[in-house]
Design a binder for these strands. Structure first.
Length: 597
RNA sequence: GAUUCCAUAGCUCAGCUGGAUAGAGCAACGGUUUUCUAAACCGUAGGCCUUUGGUUCGAAUCCAAAUGGGAUCACCA
């Protein structure tokens, strides 16, 4: 059992035994660095029941713990703070018993809950940009974390492949494309289609400006511009299954999918299932009928259907237009129900930006009101926007940071830095390319994941992403150092893994070594917290602290100069375990670690 | 206007389920290489934790208000 839990339970017992009072739970914290101890109990809360001075109360509890818990070595009291010292032997036993065991359990428990994680969900009218990068990295990492925490995870992608915005690219290509294809232009498919999306907007804007100069209002001009009428006509034809429109749609979407596939591969994300809106956009209508029958939904005089959420502090939400067609919300109701029927999930997590907070609040509330019990398991993983120094990115205005460009730039920077540091020696071209990819993408991923998902983040394209300090390359570098140590150990006949060598861990270990062991011990706590909060940032901070701590240790403590063979082996084993922890943590973030750099 | 999220070093961020003197990285300045790879390590400097009030033995952390910033408030997705 976890030492923290043991201490908490014993403290509750102590309070019961000393003051005959039952306390539900007690909070322990890590002892501040300036004091001796591992865990601290703040006793101010117990003064009412002890009716004694803080110091005396702390001493009484401390004595009880020391006598009744074999793991407690000692304690000291400063004012109302009871600092508890755990025996070195406890940490050493933990270390020895966990050596060379995986940090992440590779098998799932028998009745692992099913969690669906929806992320990415791109539009097929333009290439991925920085905002999508955050979404993809976050969704993938959360899926990895939940998997490691013992859930059966289904990663899913809902591709928005239809609608008026797709028609814009299609129409523009038809008019001005001159038959251009990815092959003929040398452009990646998604970029080619995105080019025509921008093209449409350019022409459309000039038409609107023309109409406005003739005295029309903004709204009128936007409605009457011929291009607007043309895409609306195109959308109607699409919905009617018009052969020409559908063929064009299929052709251009295929280009986009090929492009996305390349971006996803570069980014290292994947999906277990992919849904297309062209297949799901009609879902949800039967649910509307049920809702009407049960009275949860109402019909207006003009035949449109809505739900009244004003009693819940929200508005009236329309679910079917007067002409009977469905809206975004209708579709999301339908897909949620469909997913539950297909996967019987315990939880469904939507990785979607915080600009849709309201939408999901309404969606979940409607499903609850309609009586779906599983709606309690729905969660909106809401993350902040990625902003540029000049503000929000706008694809139509070209102020976007393109995902493919950014990734390539990161790889290039990694290559340049590696060469500059003279670390390419003995690397084959293929290995070098792999290394640049690992470092460059690692830096990018860590940069985005170390920030709390809920917070908006600032990205300044003119300042390159760091490779020093609190970054993935720093963490990777420490992993690499450890691998180099282990190689050297092999050459010197120190077989770290050989079970036949019994290592007598020295009685007294360095404070830094104990600290490192405690950090290893806390891996599971970090994993659990990250899973509970859906926050890769917790893992990122954990692994950075571990790597930083190790870096100091590595610097201050030469290993092979040591005379005692046991001590050398212990330090090698400690280093190896830290390497394992780094690798496992980075895997949770979707970041690879190289063997050399 | 309504709702909602946010505000910590020059910059980017931790810390927030109340606890001891608020931590990192970057940038700046200075140092460390006959050592297991310096993408490293050490040091200096940098803070009215936006403001005001409240709760408490104790507030960056909880509550309220103010100020500033973002988002949402479509029969768009």
């Amino acid at each position: 059992m976890n030492i923290e839990k043991k201490l908490q339970e014993k403290t509750i017992q102590a309070l019961q035994s000393l003051y005959a009072t039952t306390v539900e739970k007690v909070a322990l914290e890590k002892t501040n660095h300036d004091f001796k101890g591992d865990y601290t109990l703040v006793v101010f809360n117990f003064l009412k029941i002890s009716k004694k001075k803080p110091e005396d109360t702390a001493i009484e509890i401390g004595n009880y713990l020391k006598t009744n818990l074999p793991e407690v070595a000692d304690f000291n009291v400063v004012k109302g703070f009871l600092n508890i010292v755990v025996k070195d032997s406890f940490w050493l036993n933990y270390f020895q018993s966990s050596f060379n065991k995986p940090f992440i359990n590779p098998t799932l428990p028998e009745n692992a809950p099913t969690v669906m994680v929806e992320y990415s969900s791109p539009n097929t009218n333009k290439p991925l940009h920085l905002g999508h990068v955050r979404n993809n990295l976050l969704g993938f990492s959360v899926a990895e974390i939940l998997k490691a925490a013992g859930n059966h995870v289904v990663k899913t992608n809902l591709v928005n492949d239809r609608g008026i915005h797709i028609c814009k690219s299609m129409l523009a290509w038809q008019k001005w494309g001159g038959g251009e294809t990815p092959e003929s232009s040398g452009l990646k498919g998604d970029h080619l289609v995105g080019k025509y999306y921008v093209e449409f907007d350019k022409h459309y804007k000039s038409q609107v400006a023309d109409f406005k100069s003739k005295g029309l209002s903004d709204e009128e001009a936007e409605k009457q511009a011929p291009l607007m009428l043309e895409i609306q006509d195109m959308l109607r034809k699409w919905e009617a299954g018009d052969k020409v429109v559908r063929t064009l749609w299929e052709k251009m979407n295929a280009w986009v999918y090929k492009g996305f596939e390349a971006s996803y591969k570069m980014l290292g994300v994947s999906f277990d299932s992919t849904y297309y809106e062209s297949n799901t956009y009609l879902l949800g209508k039967n649910i509307i009928d049920e809702g009407l029958a049960s009275g949860v939904l109402k019909r207006r005089a003009d035949n449109s259907v809505y739900i009244d959420l004003t009693a819940d502090g929200l508005d009236e939400k329309t679910l079917l237009r007067a002409d009977g067609t469905s809206v975004y919300m209708t579709q999301d109701l339908g897909t949620a129900v469909q997913r539950f029927e297909q996967h019987k999930f315990n939880k469904l997590i939507y990785t979607v930006g915080n600009e849709q907070d309201y939408h999901f609040k309404v969606l979940f509330l409607i499903l609850k009101k309609m009586g779906y019990k599983w709606a309690d398991g729905l969660f909106h993983l809401s993350y902040g926007m990625v902003e540029l120094p000049e503000g929000k990115m706008k694809s139509r205005e070209g102020t976007v940071v393109d995902a493919d460009d950014l990734m390539q730039e990161m790889v290039n920077t990694a290559a340049a830095t590696t060469k500059e540091l003279g670390k390419t020696e003995g690397l084959s071209d293929a290995d070098a390319d792999k290394l640049y990819h690992t470092i460059g993408l690692g830096a990018l991923k860590y940069f985005m994941l170390k920030i709390d998902p809920k917070k908006k983040m600032l990205f300044n394209p003119s300042e390159s992403i760091d490779f020093n300090g609190n970054t993935a390359p720093f963490i990777q570098f420490n992993y690499v150092r450890i691998q180099a140590l282990l190689r050297k150990a092999n050459e010197n006949n120190f077989n770290v893994l050989n079970e036949s060598i019994t290592v007598n861990i020295p009685e007294v270990i360095l404070p830094k070594e104990k600290e490192l062991i405690i950090r290893l011990y806390n891996f599971n706590t970090a994993l659990k917290q990250a899973a509970d909060e859906y926050s890769p940032a917790i893992i990122a901070n954990y692994v950075y602290d571990l790597a930083k701590e190790y870096s100091q240790y590595y610097h201050d403590t030469p290993i092979f100069k040591e005379e005692s063979k046991d001590l050398i082996l212990f330090r090698l084993q400690l280093s190896k375990t830290i390497g394992d922890a780094i690798k496992s943590s980075m895997k949770l973030l979707g970041i690879e670690v190289p063997e050399r750099m």
